[in-house]
Design a protein around this nucleic acid. Structure first.
Lengths: 340, 340
DNA sequence: ATCGAATGTGGAACCGTTTCCTGTCGCTCT
DNA sequence: AGAGCGACAGGAAACGGTTCCACATTCGAT
């Protein structure tokens, strides 16, 4: 395997000059540079990133910690991040970390603490103070996308407003008995995505002067199968039933639609359903939803990270760091006016 | 940031001994090791993987190239790989590479060619000879999971048999007019997953003495929305319709079920549907499917990779390298006897 | 008692880059 | 004409580990 010394010899220059010519830093005469580049490509030279980052301290690699890869939202974010990072010449090291536990601690204390990543993007994970400190102490920039606990740069949708908006949409349609399939984990972290959406729901209901029955709020994982289960539980009592349902995510909503179908409840005639995410399937299922744009969010997170790393060329200005990420209510056929 | 010299000094030993004590290679007296370890943890020492891999030539990092992260099958595989790699102390660098093109070439010629990964796992990607060579030339082990073109270690389901099995299931139920929603890309790569499943379907039909009408084979992307579109096209002519449908994947099958619902076609009364994958939602949708176990497949791929890397501790024996990965037909309510 | 192997430790070389420091030009400015 | 500066190139010192080699000790076997 050729090394830079080989390139230098072939081009008739010193290692120092070869390095400068290839990296584009420092003064190199134009024809010299050309000779070096030609020599390098001739013998198929490729720099050793290990050697380079050993001396520069930069690895051109960012770590992504993400609790799921197989939930639509997270998958989209991951794709967005990957694409943007690749375009910037960065590698992406994936840490799929869900629950708290020894495995998670190992990721933070061992994997991320090593010098292998220049920065970390945490998506949808509720970081402990200890975890944030560990990163900060190593001087690794940290960007949080959603989730909670991050003291650092944070990008997030206003999930409370999302919850309010979804609920108000149903209220405006005349519904009063509005149930909520709430994302679990809300209790541990009231600041979490699911907790915020639930808070927004409660706020809208309270503002409308309605107190939801406790049995009208059912916790569920943010998945279709569990949404199905939760919806069966919620809708199982035929005598008195909600006329509308705010599902904490589109995937939950799909499960609820399936449950309604199974129970012979017509959507939207007997039950209006609204979800959150703008899932790829939402259009097919005619689901009213509050869209967010996870792929774009991932791209944005990369923008911020690159800026934090002093990668100068990023042209577009930073989005107002405080401002929440955009969302949009898309009304489809799964919601309609409340029956009299 | 502490370096190994600091640890050595604090423990009163040489760098060499400290290194041996921490890595567990070579002879170190037991009490010496303890002193070194204590010193290391006291000052929070963590090895620099760059420095280590510079000299050893091993990075403890494997690259995964995968065309989608947001299709269920691929997401599951990725999760399985991640978990297994993490457990073995390896990092996973993700390359989300779909189409052929300059971006893909860049991944293979630049990213993967550098010394940053010890090996590559390619899942579901049809590798060109050039791409395989590039890796081989750098002496990087390559494990292919599904996909085609890999000359190297390959793990795969027998997708032709899967196609046959699914079709035979429908034939046994008395169906004769059996349509197929075929995964696209089959033409470019007849050896691809989708191409094999289609071949299996054709084989079973031919064996049964049936020649499917060309309009009964519709190509679709392996996604629910596109399955929906394709099924609408397939089932749109009310006069003569298939009584059964073999969808190239569960996700396609879900789209087809939705399309049937939309068209007022009852499943399974008017139309039996069988899919492939064992998708997380299959049970909820009562979908008959041929399960495969992508998470497990990912774990297996990691096993093979680790073995190729000479990671000795992996206890369980290699699965017979030629043998196809396991699958299982799971019959649910989406298939039933053909109407008379 | 002697020898060889096994065990334990340290010094120094090495991995492949980047970058600091020097040094040589050739040019412009005073 | 001499000083000063910018462009260019090379030697050598890092970066932070691992491992080869040499050397010292202990111990069991002959």
């Amino acid at each position: 395997m050729p090394v830079i010394g080989d390139v230098a010899r072939l081009a008739g220059v010193s290692k120092a000059t070869a390095s400068r010519a290839l990296s584009g830093r420092g003064y190199v005469a134009d024809d010299t540079r050309q000779r070096v580049v030609a020599a390098a490509s001739k013998i198929g030279y490729i720099v050793s990133p290990d050697a380079a980052s050993l001396v520069t301290g930069r690895t051109k690699n960012v770590g992504v910690v993400i609790p799921f890869v197989n939930r639509w939202f997270f998958g989209e974010v991951l794709e967005g991040i990957e694409r943007a990072l690749l375009a910037a010449g960065y590698d992406l090291t994936l840490y799929n970390v869900a629950e708290t536990g020894p495995e998670r601690a190992r990721v933070f204390d061992f994997f991320l603490a090593r010098k292998r990543v220049d920065a970390v993007i945490a998506v949808g994970v509720d970081l402990s103070g200890h975890e944030v400190d560990a990163l900060e102490h190593r001087e690794k920039p940290l960007v949080c996308l959603g989730g909670s606990g991050g003291a650092a740069a944070r990008l997030a949708v206003d999930d409370r407003a999302v919850g309010t908006l979804a609920t108000e949409h149903l209220l405006h349609l005349g519904h009063t008995r509005i149930a909520h399939l709430a994302g679990a984990g809300a209790l541990d972290h009231p600041a979490s995505v699911a907790g915020q959406r639930r808070a927004g729901y409660l706020e809208a209901m309270t503002t409308a002067g309605i107190t939801p029955a406790p049995s009208d709020i059912v916790e569920t994982e943010m998945s279709t199968p569990d949404g199905y289960r939760a919806a069966l539980q919620l809708l199982g009592h035929p005598n008195h039933r909600p006329t509308a349902l705010f599902a904490a995510s589109d995937e939950v909503a799909f499960g609820a639609m399936r449950a309604a179908d199974r129970l012979g409840i017509a959507v939207p005639l007997d039950l209006s359903i609204v979800g959150v995410d703008g899932h790829e399937y939402a259009e097919m299922f005619d689901l009213t939803t509050i869209e967010q744009y996870p792929g774009e969010q991932g791209r944005l997170a990369v923008d911020v990270v690159l800026r934090l790393l002093g990668e100068g060329e990023v042209a577009d200005p930073l989005p107002d760091s405080g401002a929440p990420l955009p969302t949009r209510l898309v009304v489809r056929a799964s919601t309609t006016r409340a029956p009299r």
